[in-house]
Amino acid sequence: MDGNGRWAQRRSLPRTAGHRAAETTVIDIIEAARSAGVEWLSLYAFSTENWNRPGSEVDYLMRLVRRVVRKHAPLLLARGIRCRFLGAADPRIPRGLAQDFADLATLTADSRAMTLTVAFDHGGRRDIVEAARSLIRSGTPAEEVTERLFADHLPFPDTPDVDLVIRTSGEQRISNFMLWQVAYAEWVFPEALWPDFRAPDFHACLHTYRRRDRRFGGVPPQTNGDPS
């Protein structure tokens, strides 16, 4: 969800206006993903590094997120979307917001149409460190640690590997996002700023993804000539 600030700047609006405009996109994309048959959708809303932004902007974001969560809770429930929040462990998160996160997760826990993971106060490295801690605490011998076992100790271990990452506004960085799960992800970098990003743009990204040839480090099945 990149480009809110730039979107606002281009219109000579305060940065906060960009965040507010992002709400429409969020709902639009959730709806587009669900109708396109996407079963796992993750949104990167707030990173552990975002705490470094000016205090007033962080405060504004917290209030905005809280309003958005509460406003759309019934819709998310009705659409059968299971919501959960990745990260969200920092004590700086206002108590009311944390309660709303927990409530929304409880409310939609049994929904199965799509799982929406909102990465809020998320850091990919931190998750890996947490998994390592959890492994050590469980007393697993070093030689027994496998990739599969390690993944079981990550937060929300049922999350599958990420297939496609869409990073808006032309930025081409990973920015500490779900580092473990994006190992074999395809990346798309549309130029649109997040508040301008809409369902057709999302479908275009899906289309690009479908044309990609995912090899997972292997060789393409039909090669010209003998690979040996």
């Binding site: 809280r66 019934p74 004590p91 409530d103 929304l104 409310l107």
Partner: peptide, 26 residues
């Protein structure tokens, strides 16, 4: 779940939610 929905539907007090204690125990 019912009480979670109830809490989510309860209108917020005018957006200016005071946050007295910064959630120490969590």
């Amino acid at each position: 779940r019912a009480s979670a929905l109830l809490r989510l539907l309860t209108p917020l007090g005018d957006g200016t939610v005071p946050d007295p204690v910064p959630a120490t125990s969590r």
